[in-house]
C-alpha cells in the first residue's frame, strides 16, 4: 500500500517536472526541474526494488549530468532569448501525442505474460533482497555475463573524455 502511494506521488511529480522542463521560459529553472525529475526517477527505481540503480541514478544523473548541464547553460546563456519553441511546435506536439496514445493503447491491450521460473541465462533475486552483489554476478559471470560490453563501455568513456577535452580546447593560442 505504501509503495502504491509512493508510486503515485513520484509519478505525478515526475510528469509535472518533465512538463516544466519542456514548457518553462527560463532555461535555468528548466534545468533545476530536470534534476527534480531525475530524483523522482531514482524513487521509482526504489519502488521497483532496484536499490543499486537508484544510488547510481542519484550519483550520475543528479550529480554529474545535472551539474554539467548547469555549467553549459551558464556558459551559453542568452538572457534575452530564454527557451522558446521553434516553428515545429504544432507538428511535434501532434507527433508526441500520437506516439503516446499508440504506446499506451498497446500496453493496455497486451495481456502481459508471467513466467513462473527464472530462465537459465538470467540471474534472479527474490524481492526485498539487496541487488548490488547479484548485479556484479550478472555483469561479470564467466558463462553469460557482460564482460566484453563492460570493457567496451570503458573505452567509450575514455573516448568521450578525450573528445570533450579536444572539442572545448581553445585553438587560438597555437
Amino acid at each position: 500500500m505504501t509503495t502504491e502511494i509512493a508510486f503515485w506521488i513520484l509519478a505525478l511529480v515526475m510528469v509535472g517536472a518533465a512538463l516544466g522542463v519542456v514548457l518553462l521560459r527560463d532555461i535555468f529553472r528548466a534545468a533545476l526541474l530536470l534534476v527534480l525529475c531525475f530524483f523522482t526517477v531514482a524513487g521509482i527505481y526504489i519502488t521497483l526494488n532496484a536499490d543499486f540503480l537508484a544510488a547510481v541514478q542519484v550519483l550520475i544523473y543528479v550529480g554529474a549530468i545535472g551539474i554539467l548541464l548547469m555549467f553549459a547553460i551558464m556558459l551559453t546563456r542568452n538572457v534575452q532569448r530564454g527557451n522558446p519553441f521553434n516553428r515545429l511546435n504544432g507538428p511535434a506536439l501532434l507527433l508526441a501525442f500520437l506516439i503516446m496514445i499508440i504506446i499506451i493503447s498497446v500496453v493496455a491491450a497486451t495481456d502481459w505474460p508471467s513466467i513462473t521460473a527464472v530462465p537459465q541465462q538470467a540471474v534472479g533475486v527474490a524481492v526485498d533482497e539487496p541487488t548490488t552483489g547479484h548485479i556484479a554476478e550478472a555483469l561479470f559471470s564467466k558463462d553469460n555475463g557482460f564482460v566484453l560490453p563492460f570493457e567496451i563501455a570503458s573505452v567509450l568513456l575514455l573516448a568521450a573524455l578525450i573528445g570533450a577535452v579536444v572539442l572545448v580546447r581553445r585553438k587560438d593560442k597555437e
Binding site: V15, A18, L19, V21, V22, I27, R81, N83, P84, F85, N86, L88, N89, P91, A92, L93, L95, A96, F97, I99, M100, I103
Partner: peptide
C-alpha cells in the same frame, strides 16, 4: 518519453 520527444523536437535551445 512523449514529453521528452516533444521537447526534443520543439525547442530552439
Amino acid at each position: 518519453f512523449s514529453i521528452g520527444l516533444y521537447g526534443a523536437l520543439a525547442k530552439r535551445n
